[in-house]
Computed example of a mutant assay.
Amino acid sequence: MTMHDLAPELLLRVFESLSSVSDIISLSLTCRYFSEILPKSQKLTLFFGAFDESNGPVEDIIQLLTQNNNQPLHVRRTPPLSFALLSQATAIARVARRYVELYPNFRWPNGESEHRRLLDACEARRLRRAIYRIWGYTNAFHQSAYHVPRTNVPATTERLQLLRTWSNRELFELEDLRGTLEQLLATEICPTDGEVYSRIPNDAQKFHLSLQYPHLRPVEAVTVSYEELFHNSHHTDHSPSKPSVQELRIRHMQGWGSDLQNFYLVQAFLKLSPAQILWLYDNAVRRADVERFVEEQTHELCFFDCGSLLFQDWVAVLHARGVDVQQAREALWDGTTGIVVDNGTGQVDALR
């Protein structure tokens, strides 16, 4: 007996058992009978179900994609499913998958590299959920509503209402990701003068100082072309001899000032969406590249004058729920709550 001989009801069960959109499409393209056995509405349901398994929570992607000025953000929106919506969701999920790849490097830095591992399916889903939610928060309150005063009461109320729709555990995951983005920005995008100086070889420090202070640059210094400095992540040249963006950044990124200046800069950069931060990580090599990107993306002259509001909103919501915020942050640092839980769940239960 071949699959063509199976009853339509059994073939539907086969389609429903597939765990990825590509598998459903591949089976549908096997023959005309398989392609026509599912009505369009049922195909969409299967596609979104499979997409949720591998890239979800799809519900949070939908909330991100359907943000608008006519509905409160904390009210869940249920648009009709469509292939256009699925295509947009796929582009969002592509960014989240990249963060799933990067997260272990920041969760277990060089000093803890022996513990580094890939995220399991549940951890990856928690990370993606936090990405979609921070992305929605950023779009709503730091980009489209940029000129709303930070003390505006309706805007503050709306921000807090959005965070109140999430459980304590989900808020801890949100802060875990926010802290990871802080680390990425502080080490890769806007490092301090001291960090930049300390991580380069001693024999190259004089040359690096000449980049920081042009009047010290030796006459024989060789300038590097823009194409060599500004690596595009879409380049097809994967030659082992070609340095990565991260390697180029270590060589050429200038410092952004002192530790205190770095703190405020990072808070400003957290107003960028996860997609924008990822673009900087994958493309920006020099400080000028970062500054030009910020100018082009935000069109905001005062971008660096104020930081993200997410942390203070997070604190306000947890305080209102009677949660000890310092204890919650210590639990995140200890790995007893957050996206990846290494040391048991007792602390998590105490903070719920």
Rank of each mutant, 00 (worst) to 15 (best):
L211I: 07
Y281H: 14
P243I: 06
F106A: 12
V348M: 14
N110K: 08
L27D: 08
W279C: 12
L280T: 02
L309P: 00
E220L: 10
T236S: 10
G346F: 07
F83W: 12
Q261E: 15
C190S: 13
L118D: 12
L318G: 01
A121R: 11
F106T: 11
P218S: 09
P201H: 08
G111Q: 07
A145R: 14
S113N: 05
S20D: 09
T2V: 07
V294Y: 04
S210K: 04
P39M: 01
S19Q: 13
P191S: 12
Q88W: 01
V285E: 08
A328E: 03
A186V: 06
I92Q: 13
D176L: 03
L86F: 02
Q143G: 05
F293K: 06
T45Y: 00
L18N: 05
S210T: 11
V245N: 14
L65W: 01
G56Y: 01
S239T: 09
E330N: 09
M3F: 14
V58K: 00
S26F: 01
R125I: 03
A320H: 04
M3T: 13
Q327Y: 03
A186P: 04
Y137D: 04
R329V: 15
T298F: 04
V341S: 04
G255V: 11
P104Y: 04
L310V: 09
T180F: 03
T165K: 08
D193N: 15
L18D: 06
L162H: 07
E182N: 07
T138W: 00
R13C: 15
F106R: 07
V75T: 11
L27Q: 06
L332Y: 01
V245T: 15
P104T: 05
S144Y: 13
V341T: 10
A145V: 00
L6D: 07
R164C: 15
L184F: 12
E228M: 09
L270A: 03
T90E: 13
F47D: 04
D342R: 06
Y99H: 09
P214M: 11
I277E: 02
Q183C: 12
L12Q: 06
S35D: 12
Q254M: 15
L310M: 10
F172V: 04
E158P: 08
S198C: 13
L46P: 02
C306P: 00
L127F: 01
S273I: 08
Y146Q: 14
G346P: 00
W108R: 09
I62G: 02
S41N: 08
L318K: 00
R150A: 14
A93R: 02
L351K: 02
E330I: 14
R107H: 13
C122V: 15
F230L: 15
D305M: 11
V294T: 10
I24F: 02
F48T: 08
E173Y: 00
L280H: 06
